[in-house]
């Protein structure tokens, strides 16, 4: 078994395991953390379906970010939308036969990489040159940007400059997904491909321990996911009822 094939195959398994187990654990933590107070940022929706719409607008067009800072919103939206297109395009390496929607996304994803890089460079410039943002930036803030830039730059180079054998790579990826232990298809060892994959593996590993947790986290944000109905329906945490009250019904008439 060729060394790099085994190295990257095993790294993918380890990274995926870390991503799923620790990421899943984090989501579980978010889900069971009590929200003792009614604190939706008003004006807030007064029905559950309203909250669904609010969260959808939050995750698709970053509504509250738009209201707070137009520049960050613009760059963040460009980056995230481009990332979506690029991710959809990459499904071709994991699915056979390739879905029609993925095939359609190919040309868009190819040039989407430039939009993604533009967004990332803009966000990096903001972090470096806006004095107050620079002051509060930690190494991990930069790490995420550098990892994503490494992924974006190496990927764009593979696409447009130093091509790799994508047929062989897809065969490798399918054999990894198929759990063909130590019987994997050989990985092409072009430098840029290995750089690309290394950065992806590192990003998957740091995901559950970093600010990248904003992906699941946004759905658990009490100021966004709560219904604004404190008068219609009393907000009370189950543990508070058990601890301090004989029965929740006896207090409703106060």
């Amino acid at each position: 078994m060729e060394f790099w094939t085994a190295f990257y195959a095993i790294s993918f398994y380890v990274a995926t395991l870390i991503f799923l187990v620790f990421g899943g654990h984090k989501v579980y933590q978010y889900a069971v953390t009590p929200a003792p107070l009614k604190i939706p940022t008003t004006p807030a929706p007064v029905t559950t379906s309203g909250v669904v719409v609010r969260l959808l607008l939050e995750v698709t067009i970053f509504k509250s970010l738009f209201r707070s800072n137009k520049w960050i919103w613009l760059f963040a939206l460009i980056f995230h939308l481009a990332l979506w297109i690029v991710l959809i395009r990459h499904l071709r390496y994991f699915i056979d036969p390739v879905w029609a929607i993925v095939a359609l996304a190919q040309p868009f994803g190819k040039y989407g990489s430039f939009a993604m890089l533009f967004g990332l460079f803009a966000l990096l410039a903001r972090r470096m040159f806006v004095a107050r943002i620079c002051y509060i930036s930690t190494p991990s803030d930069y790490l995420m940007l550098f990892l994503l830039l490494a992924i974006g730059i190496s990927g764009t180079l593979i696409s447009f400059v130093t091509h790799t054998d994508i047929i062989q790579f897809k065969a490798f990826m399918l054999s990894v997904l198929n759990f063909n232990f130590f019987n994997w298809q050989t990985i092409p060892t072009d430098t840029m491909l290995l750089v690309h994959l290394t950065a992806v593996i590192l990003l998957m590993i740091v995901f559950p321990f970093s600010k990248l947790l904003h992906v699941p986290g946004v759905f658990f944000s009490p100021t966004r996911n709560q219904v604004d109905n404190p008068r219609e329906k009393r907000h009370v945490a189950p543990w508070a009822v058990k601890e301090f009250e004989t029965s929740p019904a006896s207090t409703t008439s106060e």
Binding site: D96, A171, L174, S175, N178, F179, N180, F181, N183, Q185
Partner: peptide, 15 residues
């Protein structure tokens, strides 16, 4: 468990 079941199948689609 999953890998012993799935891993045995071996073949992946190739052009």
């Amino acid at each position: 468990l999953v890998t012993t079941v799935v891993g045995a199948s071996g073949e992946v689609p190739m052009p």
